[in-house]
Amino acid sequence: MTDWNLPWEGGCRCDRVRIRVSAPPVFTAACHCTGCQKMSSSAFSLTVAVPPEGFAVIAGETVIGGMHGDLQHHFCAWCMSWMFTRADMMPFVNVRPTMLDKPQWFVPFIETMTSEKLAWATTPAVQSYERFPPMEDFAALVGAFNAWAPGAA
């Protein structure tokens, strides 16, 4: 996919925090870990991984929530929407796709932590991992995602 129709903008539920994505995604995913289940109050969390230089908070401010550790989960301070996650160990920002103004294109390419998934939870993900993909698999996964990508137009 080469035409992602960028930039994308989005906001939290109350729209006090606004974000912009200006670089194509690295991959899309659904995470079934129990931490994401609790953070999202759902069966899994969704992610659009974007390069850090292609992501910006353009209005408002976020607060850190979740475990307050290596993963920095950013929330709107007013409505408490979980908007994105940063971590020094990740070369991308995990943006919650439902925060985008037009998330209809989103489909998870990878699903992770299926060893912790709820028995009834299914996704259309092409790649599935019981834990997280090994770091040495990421280059191939990114290439496969680019060949598969559903597009954002």
Rank of each mutant, 00 (worst) to 15 (best):
D3C: 13
N5G: 12
N5P: 05
L6E: 09
G10H: 00
G10I: 02
R13K: 11
D15R: 09
D15E: 10
R16A: 13
V17A: 08
V17W: 04
I19D: 14
A23W: 00
A23F: 04
P24T: 12
P24H: 04
V26W: 01
F27M: 03
T28N: 05
T28A: 08
A29M: 04
A30Q: 00
C31E: 06
C31W: 00
H32V: 08
C33V: 02
C33W: 05
C33N: 00
C36V: 02
Q37E: 13
K38T: 11
M39N: 15
M39E: 15
S41R: 03
S42A: 15
A43T: 13
F44V: 12
T47R: 00
A49K: 01
P52I: 14
E53Y: 08
E53S: 08
G54P: 02
F55H: 11
A56L: 03
A56E: 08
V57K: 01
I58T: 13
A59Q: 12
G60V: 01
E61L: 14
E61K: 12
G66E: 07
M67W: 02
H68C: 15
G69Q: 05
G69T: 13
D70F: 09
D70L: 14
L71T: 06
Q72K: 10
Q72M: 12
H73P: 12
H74Y: 03
H74C: 10
C79G: 04
S81W: 01
T85D: 15
R86G: 12
R86I: 14
A87N: 08
A87V: 07
D88A: 14
M90H: 07
F92A: 12
R96C: 08
P97C: 11
P97K: 04
T98Y: 03
M99N: 10
L100N: 07
P103N: 08
P103K: 05
Q104W: 06
V107W: 06
V107N: 14
P108C: 11
P108K: 04
F109G: 08
T112L: 06
M113T: 04
E116M: 03
L118K: 07
L118N: 11
L118T: 15
A119Y: 02
A121K: 08
T123C: 14
T123E: 04
P124D: 15
P124I: 07
V126R: 10
V126I: 11
V126K: 09
S128W: 03
F132I: 00
F132L: 09
P133Q: 11
P133F: 07
D137G: 07
D137L: 00
D137S: 10
D137Y: 01
V142P: 02
F145S: 04
F145K: 01
N146W: 05
A152T: 11
